[in-house]
Design a protein around this nucleic acid. Structure first.
Lengths: 397, 397
DNA sequence: AAAATTTGTAAGTCGCTTTAACAAATACGC
DNA sequence: GCGTATTTGTTAAAGCGACTTACAAATTTT
């Protein structure tokens, strides 16, 4: 049961978060602006602003004159106010970003890893992160924690993790938390990418949206009623194994015609392999394949129908403000999807404009890692942050 | 933006709701029990309980002795504390219930209506309801309002309302609110049914679940993160036009293979008509058709695959605690669905047991109306009730 | 230069939860 | 059977943060 009583102290934390978010979304703002936007009184805003200032999370700009009345002091987030780590773990690869409070990437590393050895991978990651921090790029006392995202689903025999073999039931979160001695949040990669666009990208301010993440596999990140959605086990948004072609390709899950067998790097590699071209990673794919290739066109022709159905069912079930398309795929390929998928079939969102319904994600291939970092901010500042986004069943490594 | 600041008075309303809900879900409870369950202090609980008592919403039971210590006073909801009206408007028919605070149906009426005449229908409904109230079955001052549910989607040209022709853009809510002079909440029928099971039925206490509502058409009601989901326009959960057979039946929406063309009364009637049997309403269907009929079996054989896909995609996208199957369909037919659909295909919910994943709704065919009534309770008591469940685009009648 | 407007602060009030202390009523131990 | 432990629920006072009211300060408008 999520029914939690409240009291004055909790209320204050809520208001602190409200002021913080208001500045983030609409800043720079004066204290009076904030009072108007939040319905808090001016004295209350002043006091909360003082507190945020004391924490170093916001900063004052130069006095702004021009209008009638006393000049106002614009307030904005202080990028240096807090730092978080974001880790995107994927097949054979880990991306780590160190971000500031406004999503600026202060440091970035990508490691090639043998992810089939889980223990070794975890040790390497922990060691590398410690090294990264020792280089002293940031004030260590301002490091709030780390977010970790990886392909889901979590804890489902026969289904997971379909894109990261052998990682089912590995207590990634606990292991890293213990080793790095900082809070670690865990979610799937789609949720990470959604979080990034939600806080720092084009999905700012949305109450309801869906991020479709295309990478090795395909997944989504969900925001409903202004909150991230994890579902009962942290596995919500798992669109990969939704059937779009009942008589279609056989899937590793045992069903036929799952979306992932049409739209994913894996499905592309399969198509290439069936035609005698052996490619085995995203890097190789990017290096060897381009927009005009016949094999790409063939694969795309087969993939666009299923993707259209996927978009359609997301619209009908979530009736979101918008759907964002992004992920690990090369940019030109996402662009092709965007172009070929139009016109969108009729749905509950048909009263919105085509441009509104489906949009390109703005952040690049690091989105998932950046969003992971953002998870750690939300977890430590938002008193109502939903833990349930995290995956549940974890066992000892 | 849903970022709303809080203060002590709002906090009190939250806590009042928390205490109310705690009693509803776990009652009968002593004041001390409530304090333990909510983390509120004992004096706070006492004060909030006094307030709820003053409102007449709860009542004390007989002193409960037996354990160590002073005997406790069990508290429970007072059924007579508040009444609400629930209206389920559907093709050719309106069901109205007058319910008490614990979902007990104090009065029920079903009217056959010519719903193709919207103005007339609205007038009739308003008149009948006024008459119903005049009969003086309840203390009028304790009537909190009305909930209205009807088939969606709302405000989508070419798609809605697929099961209630001519009602698109009709300002039902405003019209009834003005005529009856009480607050009226509006949502789709799936949401109504979900609400009924959530508050009074087998879905009590869930944070995440989906109700699949099968009637003239097919829809769902969604609860995510402990809140109803409406989406941007109040149209979330519109599963009817999700494509499950890309090469399948043509649908009135212009697409092919929509779920509704396989599982809905409408699809059954179509199948019968193609085979020379003309039926035109749910009543007729119930009267003329039974479990063993060949035509039913044929239709069922074709319907069960699509339904299985529908359940599968709901599981994968929402990862709910459970899915409930119910609606306007005759009970024996829902039972057949429940039996034939097993085993459920693999999904993110496969780690749950089959019995947990899909369950029969407990409330009968009045569920949608009862849930509509429950909407009015939540709207007036829960300070964080999500208005967005309501349909948005409404125009004057 | 006076008036109007707007920003932001200071002082005190208000509402609600909390802590601390305690009275009342029961079961339990001897 | 009586004192003790336990639990319930209330009373009184403290604490906390938002609110209202009043006002000083800095600018534009007239």
């Amino acid at each position: 049961m999520s029914l939690r009583a409240t009291n004055v102290s909790h209320g204050k934390l809520v208001n602190l978060w409200v002021v913080f978010e208001t500045i983030r979304l609409h800043g720079p703002l004066s204290r009076s602006d904030i009072a108007r936007l939040t319905t808090l009184s001016k004295p209350s805003v002043s006091s909360l602003v003082d507190e945020l200032d004391g924490l170093g999370l916001i900063r004052e700009g130069a006095l702004r004159t021009g209008g009638v009345g006393k000049p106002s002091t614009p307030l904005d987030l202080n990028p240096e106010g807090a730092f978080t780590l974001g880790l995107h773990l994927d097949y054979g690869r880990a991306t780590v970003v160190l971000t500031d409070l406004i999503g600026g990437v202060r440091h970035r590393e990508v490691w090639a890893l043998d992810t089939s050895d889980q223990l070794r991978t975890l040790r390497t990651i922990a060691r590398q992160i410690k090294g990264l921090l020792k280089k002293g790029k940031i004030d260590r006392s301002r490091l709030m924690g780390m977010g970790l995202v990886m392909p889901g689903p979590f804890g489902v025999a026969g289904l997971s993790p379909t894109r990261l073999p052998g990682w089912d039931g590995v207590a990634v979160r606990a292991a890293l938390e213990a080793d790095l001695r900082m809070p670690v949040m865990l979610a799937n990669d789609g949720t990470g990418a959604a979080m990034a666009e939600w806080r720092f990208g084009v999905a700012k301010g949305h109450e309801n949206f869906v991020y479709v993440f295309i990478g090795n596999g395909i997944g989504t990140g969900l925001v409903v009623n202004g909150r991230l959605v994890g579902g009962e086990d942290g596995n919500a948004g798992e669109i990969a194994h939704v059937v779009v072609r009942p008589e279609g390709h056989e899937c590793i899950c045992g069903k036929h015609g799952c979306l992932e067998t049409y739209i994913s790097l894996d499905s592309a590699l399969h198509h290439f392999r069936r035609n005698g071209v052996i490619l085995s990673s995203m890097e190789e794919f990017e290096r060897c394949v381009g927009p005009g290739d016949t094999l790409v066109e063939e694969w795309l022709a087969e993939a666009i129908g299923p993707l259209r159905l996927g978009i359609n069912l997301i619209e009908n079930l979530f009736n979101p403000e918008a759907i964002y398309l992004g992920g690990d795929f090369p940019s030109w390929l996402l662009d092709l999807f965007m172009a070929r998928i139009l016109p969108l079939p009729i749905s509950v969102n048909s009263s919105h404009s085509q441009q509104t319904r489906l949009r390109r994600a703005a952040l690049g291939q690091d989105a998932a890692a950046i969003g992971a970092a953002a998870l750690a901010v939300a977890a430590s500042l938002n008193p109502d942050y939903l833990q349930r986004v995290q995956a549940r069943p974890e066992y000892e490594v």
